[in-house]
Computed example of a mutant assay.
Amino acid sequence: MATRDSMDNLMQQCEDAIRFAEEQYKQSSLQEQYNDDNYTQALQVLEDTYGDIAKMAHFANSQQREQLHRKRLQLQQLQNSMILKDH
C-alpha cells in the first residue's frame, strides 16, 4: 500500500503539472509559436507525471488506484488537447 504522504505528494505533483500545462496552453493561444519551449516542457511534465502515476499504481490499494486512475485520465485529456491543438 502506498503511504498517505506519497499519495499526497503525487496528487500535488499532478495538480502542479496540470496547472502548468493549462497555463502554457492558454499562453500558446496568445503568443502562438513564441512559447514553443515552455509548451514542449509542459507536455514533458505531463508525460513524466503520467509515468509517476503508473509507478505508484503498483503500490496502491484499490481506493488509491481509483484516485490515480481519475488523475491519469485528467492528465491524458489535457495532454491530448495540447497535442491536437494547432500550435
Rank of each mutant, 00 (worst) to 15 (best):
M1A: 04
M1P: 01
M1L: 04
A2F: 12
A2Q: 14
A2E: 15
A2L: 15
T3R: 11
T3D: 12
T3W: 13
T3F: 14
R4C: 00
R4M: 03
D5P: 01
S6Y: 02
S6D: 11
M7L: 14
M7Y: 12
M7S: 12
D8R: 06
D8S: 10
N9E: 11
L10R: 07
L10H: 02
L10N: 05
M11Q: 11
M11R: 08
Q12Y: 07
Q13D: 13
C14F: 02
C14Y: 01
E15Q: 04
E15I: 00
D16G: 00
A17G: 03
I18E: 12
I18P: 08
I18D: 07
R19E: 05
F20C: 04
F20P: 04
F20H: 11
A21I: 06
A21Q: 12
A21G: 09
E22A: 05
E22M: 14
E22D: 05
E23V: 00
E23A: 10
E23I: 00
Q24R: 13
Q24N: 06
Q24D: 06
Y25G: 01
Y25W: 14
K26N: 12
Q27V: 00
Q27D: 06
Q27P: 02
S29G: 14
L30Y: 10
L30N: 01
E32C: 10
Q33T: 02
Q33N: 06
Q33V: 00
Y34V: 05
Y34E: 03
Y34Q: 09
Y34S: 07
N35M: 05
N35W: 06
D36A: 15
D36P: 06
D36K: 14
N38Q: 13
N38V: 02
Y39D: 05
Y39K: 10
Y39E: 07
T40H: 08
Q41V: 02
Q41E: 11
Q41M: 12
A42Q: 04
A42Y: 09
L43S: 09
L43I: 03
L43A: 04
Q44I: 03
V45W: 13
V45Q: 11
L46T: 01
E47H: 13
E47I: 08
D48S: 11
D48Y: 13
T49Q: 07
Y50D: 00
Y50M: 08
Y50S: 08
G51E: 07
G51K: 09
G51Q: 07
D52C: 02
A54N: 08
A54K: 05
A54Q: 13
A57M: 07
A57V: 03
H58K: 10
H58N: 06
F59P: 00
A60S: 13
N61H: 09
N61V: 06
Q63R: 14
Q63N: 15
Q63G: 10
Q63K: 15
R65I: 03
R65M: 09
Q67H: 03
R70F: 05
R70V: 06
K71R: 09
R72C: 03
R72P: 00
L73W: 03
L73R: 08
L73M: 08
Q74N: 09
Q74T: 06
Q74F: 12
Q74M: 11
L75E: 01
Q76I: 05
Q76V: 03
Q77A: 15
Q77T: 11
L78Q: 07
L78W: 12
N80F: 04
N80A: 04
S81V: 03
S81E: 14
S81R: 15
I83G: 08
L84S: 12
L84E: 05
K85P: 01
K85W: 09
H87C: 05
